[in-house]
Design a protein around this nucleic acid. Structure first.
Lengths: 349, 349
DNA sequence: GTGAAAGCGCTAACAG
DNA sequence: CTGTTAGCGCTTTCAC
């Protein structure tokens, strides 16, 4: 294999501009202490030669790697990809993350890591050692994985915990899970519903709990009882079916259900159909995530849309700010979510 | 900014194993000339210390970067992400590419590049200079972009052209576009159809042409006329509508249509509905790509499924083989596609 | 088989 | 404001 060398290096630029390597380096890194005319001359040489610094060399000399690692749960991500159900979580991450990284001259690298394993640290450690990223973005359920968070703290790499509310270590960014669930519940109450069921996500996602909290709080604020209206799920279609069957078992079935994700909402829709319940006339339904499939459901589902793209973009901003020495935000940043109204909610009574 | 150093380097391993740096390097790179017992001792030290080589340092010293760049068209990719229509092309690329890379100790980096611009070379050149990838994967329409292909040839980086059939430069990997279109057409003919319309993709995708060729060939083989049965599209929903309106304008409307992608197929479905034509009874429909939405269409669409994941995985294999010095495959590799039967094709006559 | 020396491209630290 | 020196972690020579 031929030894591939950099085509044009800082040395060529220095020679062309008639300055030292260091001066070129200063221009690249936009340091203040360069006379404007020198800077301009160097920049001209850079442009003319089409010089681009090697990130390997930059990283080697103790500078940045200009790489930000975005980490997802391996099993769930691969399962989603293989299922081909249109889940576009990863796409939205890339949309928000890659573009924001590019704005700052960074690059996002997407990585899969097992949560459920004794070698999380090895896996993540290997990625860090190999890539030396300047920052790491954690998504649920990693965001609240103690083992991962503690390990990252030792690594002296800034990291953002998306969908987390614990500000103890790393930088937490909330997607307003509690608020969204609250808003969805209020929306149903405003439509005359009093018995509103809730299908929760799995407990290893802390956001599952926040969502339940939001629902409970909104119910309490309206003086409504929640007894027997909470069912556990794990984000899978099957668990959604089971939960829906439980909730819709007479008597006293709810007139509306909020599902913690789209798969479980679709499952609920199926169960309702099987039970002869019309949506939305007999049962109103709101789902979380607003992935593409809910638009194609019959009826199209009203859903909570959390902007993954905006959240990841914010995460990138926070990491880069932290790299510049800015302190982490004092108050927990909360990316607002939206209730997208479609046709699965009807007025009651 | 604290100067972040590698936690455990080759030096630590060498000291721990009581050998020279060089010997450790040889073990890492699995070179033959190390005595088994020495190798084992070094490997033990590596495992014990949790050592992982820095790819920056490896790349710096003239070795590989263990990075493979996958390049997509920027505008189209971003548009798909923003549209949230469930297009999972990128997901399938990652599924096939990331996992296969990981198998070989490589990493895939996903990158967006503009096709339509005078600075393609600068953009790609910058990515190459910054990242120094060991290989590049091109997807349509980049795969057949002369400017890109020529530029890459100069760069001495092995690259695969997915969805291309030109074996002149780089390594082409076909997704059997002609064969798929042929099969779809035969499928319709077997169901008694004789007037089969075809909605083509945009001309900057060479695969658009291959698909038309496949359809034409199958029609010719069955002695069927294609006059007035071809309509141009550009993969967009709007273009699909226009094409469908043209084809379905009486008299002599086709009894079946093949659309070159799902968006155009969905548009055709809409137009048919508006025209009062029932699918599949009045009009049979086959689409290309088999993205998630077609399952949710009413009726669910019969579609050609090209395995992007398998194709990208093959691309990775070919790049790594080429890195090892293997010659590019003599015959054009063709990744087979499948016709997924759903409910949009009916028997005619 | 193994080791020692040199250098990849760049930046931090220190001079001037 | 600019240049010089040293070294990052690793692999490539080239010795032994």
């Amino acid at each position: 294999m031929a030894r591939r060398r950099q085509a044009v290096t800082i040395r060529h630029v220095a020679a062309a501009a008639g300055v030292s390597l260091q001066t070129v380096s200063r221009v690249i890194n936009n340091e203040a202490s360069v006379r404007p005319e020198t800077k301009q001359r160097v920049q001209a040489a850079i442009d003319r030669l089409g010089y681009v610094p090697s990130i390997a060399a930059q990283r080697m000399s103790g500078s940045r790697s200009y790489l930000i690692l975005a980490v997802n749960d391996r099993d769930r991500t691969i399962a989603d990809w293989q299922a081909r159900q249109g889940t576009d979580w990863v796409d939205q991450m890339l949309l928000g993350g890659m573009l924001k990284c590019a704005e700052h001259g960074y690059r996002m690298i997407f990585e899969l890591v097992d949560t459920h394993s004794d070698h999380v640290e090895r896996e993540l450690g290997a990625a860090i050692a190999a890539l030396q990223p300047d920052g790491i973005i954690l998504t649920p359920p990693h965001s609240d994985n103690r083992q991962i968070v503690d390990f990252l703290c030792e690594q002296a790499v800034p990291f953002v915990r998306i969908g987390s509310r614990r500000q103890d270590s790393g930088i937490a960014v909330s997607m307003d899970d509690e608020g969204s669930a609250h808003a969805a519940t209020r929306h149903l109450i405003a439509h005359g519903h009093a018995r509103i069921g809730f299908i929760a996500g799995p407990p290893d996602y802390e956001l599952s709990g926040w969502r339940v909290d939001g629902w409970r709080a909104a119910m309490a604020a309206a003086g409504l009882d929640t007894t027997g209206l909470l069912a556990a799920g794990d984000f899978s279609h099957a668990s959604g079916r089971a939960a829906a069957l439980r909730l819709l078992d007479p008597p006293d079935r709810p007139t509306a259900i909020i599902a913690s994700n789209d798969q479980m909402a679709i499952a609920t829709l199926e169960v309702a159909r099987e039970l002869g319940l019309a949506v939305p006339d007999d049962l109103s339904l709101i789902s979380f995530d607003n992935t593409p499939i809910v638009q194609f459901a019959r009826p199209p589902l009203t859903a909570i849309d959390q902007s993954i793209a905006a959240t990841v973009a914010l995460a990138v901003d926070l990491i880069i700010a932290s790299l510049k020495g800015d302190a982490a935000p004092a108050a927990l940043p909360v990316v607002p979510s939206t209730l997208i109204e479609r046709a699965s909610v009807a007025r009651r009574g």
